[in-house]
Design a protein around this nucleic acid. Structure first.
Length: 155
DNA sequence: GCCAACGTTGGC
DNA sequence: GCCAACGTTGGC
């Protein structure tokens, strides 16, 4: 089992939106970055655990957890001309972009803000905390995942 | 709204 | 293959 952090802007899709979704499950579409695509296509598997992060939020924070219920498969929104993430270079014969399905696990009683995370020494190496980090799909170590859960529970 | 950091594009 | 220009991300 692996651990991941997924970023989303709550204005476009929040963890509350996930909570309201059928089966509290959604497909994680719209990733248009090759490094993140490779994780989605090749490495993220059902059963993997996910930290759910709200970027461009006030405050930016890890707001809960989810689990992967379906591994990488072609992102069909790339084929939809009306979709904001439409990409004519992606075809059904040769898909360029991929997505996974996730299901809500838990919403933290109180979110772990970016400021909170920066104060935790054992999280100092998290990709999220790296200056200039923009990757929207990030691997997280098992230890980091556990520490985040502990911190969220302790709040 | 600003802007630093980063990824992508395209001319050469 | 280099790199300037451009677009995007995301904290502040």
């Amino acid at each position: 089992m692996k651990y991941w952090l997924l970023k989303t802007e709550p204005e476009s899709f929040s963890i509350q939106d996930l909570q309201k979704a059928p089966n509290q499950t959604t497909y994680w579409d719209g990733v248009r970055n090759y490094q993140a695509r490779n994780f989605l296509r090749d490495e993220i598997k059902p059963g993997d655990r996910v930290l759910f992060y709200h970027s461009n939020a006030d405050p930016p924070a890890i707001v809960g957890t989810a689990k992967v219920v379906k591994g990488g498969y072609p992102d069909h929104t790339a084929w939809d001309k009306k979709n904001h993430h439409y990409d004519p270079a992606s075809t059904k014969e040769s898909p360029r972009w991929y997505m996974v399905d996730i299901q809500l696990d838990q919403i933290f009683d109180s979110p772990l803000s970016l400021d909170d995370l920066k104060k935790v020494k054992s999280l100092a190496k998290m990709e999220l905390l790296r200056k200039g980090s923009r990757l929207s799909v990030q691997p997280v170590t098992a230890e980091e995942f556990e520490v985040v859960l502990e911190q969220a529970g302790a709040k």
